[in-house]
């Protein structure tokens, strides 16, 4: 169980015995972070993860230029088997599976990236404030986020999307909102561990503003756990956004999306598995890849991958 600061915790940073008041740059500064990235890619897990992620990114972003047909045009009878005109056959309406597949990844991945940036960004900001200022403000932020945590994120997303319609900004926002509390928790506890350290107290004494301290002193020192969070959250964003599209709450019709392709063709999966299997494999490869990469990074930095609440 996470040990949380009580309301009575002192607002002033507690005196630290061992730390001399010198401007020591600690832990992973910028150089340390680069070193960490290099170590990550030395691990076999990291190499495989990076290769898998790059492969899917290449397919998703370069694919549209190589698609042989328009993704929405009917080119043959529904569920035609693979032939020279349609290398992967056609789907439930007779559209080219290969072209739809090549067009279906880019927006999904961009949305996932945007949602992760927004969610991790807000989580970091709230976590920094809660961890550095502590006291009433910190308590209030963390307790409000606990309430958000009490609702399964998929339900929240479905509820809002069903009421307001499948809008791009809304998808990004609901997915981002589901990340914020988890990121804030990690950032808060990392920040709490730094507030009493010598270099932070030094900058306080020379009178730097709180924002300067938070952004210039604390943030660079929590980059490693933050990167792990970003990786975990990105994997989860891809899963959640693809799931929403699969359930029929993605972008509306002319748009193509891997989740939507699986939904459209699942009914005929026994006779014609390709239109389902190809996007399934793509989603599996990128989520597995980013998970392996994140795990390798965490191992290289000796960071505990608290995987709590990946739901």
């Amino acid at each position: 169980m996470q040990i949380e600061p009580t309301a009575e915790a002192p607002v002033v940073p507690a005196p630290v015995e061992e730390a001399p008041l010198a401007p020591v740059k600690s832990l992973a500064g910028k150089g340390g972070f680069r070193e960490l990235l290099r170590n990550t890619l030395r691990l076999r897990e990291g190499k495989i993860g990076l290769a898998l992620v790059l492969f899917v990114l290449a397919v998703a972003f370069l694919g549209p230029f190589f698609a042989p047909h328009d993704p929405s045009t009917v080119i043959a009878a529904p569920y035609t088997s693979p032939n020279s005109n349609a290398l992967l056959g056609t789907d439930n309406l007779g559209r080219d599976v290969l072209s739809r597949f090549l067009h279906g990844g880019a927006v999904l991945l961009l949305l996932a990236f945007a949602a992760t940036v927004v969610g991790v960004g807000t989580g970091t900001l709230l976590g920094l404030i809660a961890g550095y200022r502590r006291g009433f403000r910190g308590e209030f932020i963390m307790r409000s986020l606990d309430v958000v945590l009490s609702f399964p994120s998929l339900l929240l997303a479905l509820l809002f999307l069903s009421l307001l319609g499948p809008k791009l900004w809304l998808i990004v926002l609901v997915v981002a909102a589901s990340h914020t509390p988890y990121v804030a928790r990690v950032v808060e506890s990392s920040t709490l561990g730094l507030t009493g350290r010598g270099f932070v107290r030094y900058t306080e004494m020379i009178g730097l503003s709180r924002w300067r301290i938070m952004s210039g002193e604390i943030l660079p020192n929590i980059l490693a756990p933050l990167t792990v969070q970003f990786g975990l959250r990105l994997t989860y964003s891809i899963a959640l956004i693809a799931s929403l599209a699969y359930l029929g709450f993605g972008r509306p019709a002319p748009a193509v999306d891997w989740g939507m392709m699986i939904n459209e063709n699942q009914a005929n999966i026994v006779a014609s598995p390709l239109p389902v299997v190809v996007p399934i494999i793509a989603i599996a490869i990128i989520t597995i890849g980013s998970n392996l990469l994140t795990d390798a990074f965490g191992r290289a930095g000796g960071i505990d991958l608290g995987r709590e609440g990946e739901a």
Partner: peptide, 30 residues
């Protein structure tokens, strides 16, 4: 375990359908 955790719910479910309910092994209803 790391690989399985990465997969979204519907990917796991549909993958099981492909493996155990279609032409590969027809053991259970799809």
């Amino acid at each position: 375990l790391l690989v399985v955790t990465a997969l979204p719910e519907f990917v796991l479910g549909v993958a099981l359908i492909v493996l155990l309910a279609t032409s590969i092994f027809h053991l259970f209803p799809a």
